[in-house]
Design a protein around this nucleic acid. Sequence first.
RNA 1: AGCGAGGUGGGGUAGUCAGGAAAUCCCGGCGGGCUCAUAACCCGUAGACCGAUGGUUCAAAUCCAUCCCUCGCUACCA
Length: 664
Amino acid sequence: MSGKPLLVTCGLPYTNGPCHIGHLRTYVPADFYVRYMRRSGEEVVFICGSDNHGTPIVISAEREGSTPRELSERYHEHFYETFRRMGVVFDRFGMTDDPMNRETTRSIVERLIANGHVYAETVSQSYCPECERFLPDRYVEGICPHCGAVARGDECDQGCGQHLEPGEIKDAICKICGGKAEFREQEHYFFKLSAFREFLLEYLPTLGGTATARNYALGWVKEALHDWCITRTMDWGVPFPGSDDLVVYVWIDAPIGYISFTKEWAEAAGADWKDCWCGDDTRVTHFIGGDIIYHHCIFWPALLKGAGYGLPHAVVASGMVTIEGRKFSKSRGYVVWTNDDYLDRGLPADYLRYYLLAYTSHTKELDFSWHAYADRVNNEIVGTLGNFIYRTMYFAEKEFSGVSDLAPRPEVVAEIERALGAVDATMRDYDFKNAVDSMMALASFGNAYIQNNAPWKLIKEDRAAAEQVIADCLQVVKALALIFEPVMPDAMQRAWAMLGYGDGIADHPIAEATTPLGARPLPKPAPLFTKVEKEQVAALEATLNEQVERAKAAAEPKMPTVSIEEFGKLDIRVAKVVSAEPIKGSKKLYKLVVDLGGEKRQVVSGIAQFYSPDELVGKDVAMIVNLAPAKIFGVESRGMILAAGDEASLLVPLRPVRPGTKVR
RNA sequence: AGCGAGGUGGGGUAGUCAGGAAAUCCCGGCGGGCUCAUAACCCGUAGACCGAUGGUUCAAAUCCAUCCCUCGCUACCA
């Protein structure tokens, strides 16, 4: 424990969409850690803010007819409020677009330039003349020069998977307006990341936090380190010093936000931000999602080093979230929105906090399923923890109308101490699942203890002995309230009040778990938790399913309306199959000859996997006759046989008609 | 393709870094108990050759090698 505060940060939410439970997988554990460390006697500063810059926000703002700043402010408020509702409370939640961060970013970039870590280079970039802006690769689409598949600007993501250099992609179009994209040369600035290789190889093994973060980063550094382009051509962002039309790349000013927000906090709190960020013994701990490890373990330490700041002490990376076993996907509907799908339905933040923390190891993939959620809540929170607290309190109040001044038995105190020890060891290892499990194990101990000692029986022959058992159980209840507060702050505050304390539980160190309660009357207890009912689970699942169905429907390409004239351009006729033979070298194709009444035609059709030649010969099928001729596998095809669906169900006339009859 | 993570009883999930009497917890199955408590809680029990193969060792889920499968990341998307 050093004299400097422990600074904990969370990855900054991007102000381009609402909060979902994927976000929470980073923020809840961070808040849990912060609450625990504070109540273990650490001085902790908890910092976060919203990330406001970058092209996607500009585009979203244009679409809704507002400004990037307005959009950012709206989502900024949204995240701040949503986090608060989830019990995630920061000492400062800033904005990267605020003056403090603009100023800090400018000064750090100037220091990087002054220290010789930045150089200029001319690069070629996609540009959309229609939108009048340079396009990040995600907004460029074209044809892969290697395999011909539709590809993104930087990578053939659906075809051969090859990386594409700027300018390589063919027929590039702008995904925003659909217009033709072109390439333009422009001077940009690069950060000499490659020069930090040795430094990173030395630094990374000393970095605390989760091993996954270290391993990812180390692997990357060992592989190769390219210099990093740190400017973008646009208006929205922090102006790059000495350049009119360039802004600093968002991945520079976003992490610098950690420093800026610390400054903002320090100003308000009368503290010195340098205690957190300058010198060798700083204790900066970053909680992030597993997808931004590189930025926090490679780019960010290099930037700090280059600018002369202290380095992160730990990076804690969380695993992904899946929804009902499916990959998290907003576009496919596999998403649970924190407000709409959870809090606004009256479900307690405490339950979700518990689920997110206790489901699995922090670094592993976490599956969110309403069924599993209800199971864990009902069995563990309600059945084990809530029930133990309530049965103890109820009995104490009913039979003894309060707490006696009996000291708890040493074996019970020892059990509590064992739990505290286990929790502390796992917490300091960022092993949150096991920490919560150790807490719940104490509640299990409580249930077994009261069950095996059966004070309801004992009281009939030995009232004093029963009172001792209840004193023991009350001590466990007190310990549970204190120890579970970081997980379920709201419910544990209520438990604290039920124990007869009038103040805030968060002001009490966890170590008080073993100090006796002292004699006092108890208020009438009430159950702390209620179950999630089966019907409710069914309704929640139904909502998710509807959402998925809606997304599926929305994903179906909408065909433009066609006029009757346009339809009339298609010459569709009934054709009788005369012969069918496989095409060499293809599993799917048949060469068919069909009778169109007056003429015979050769067509190639991809139905070989579904029909044998015998099945086809003699059948009347629907066919487009005036389709432009094509050569498929070297075989000429003049027309197309119509079939429905992936199984290629052929469309045949219900009543006999002559070959060549027109279909209308 | 490269890198990273993971494959453990019917489902889910610990344990693997620091190898040791055939393995955690939750749900579910079966049997019993209790009745203070939110049909909760307690006790007992069935069920896993710990992805595959080979190796190291007195001893491997745990270490090494190869392979298979799943997932994530891959710098000008945040």
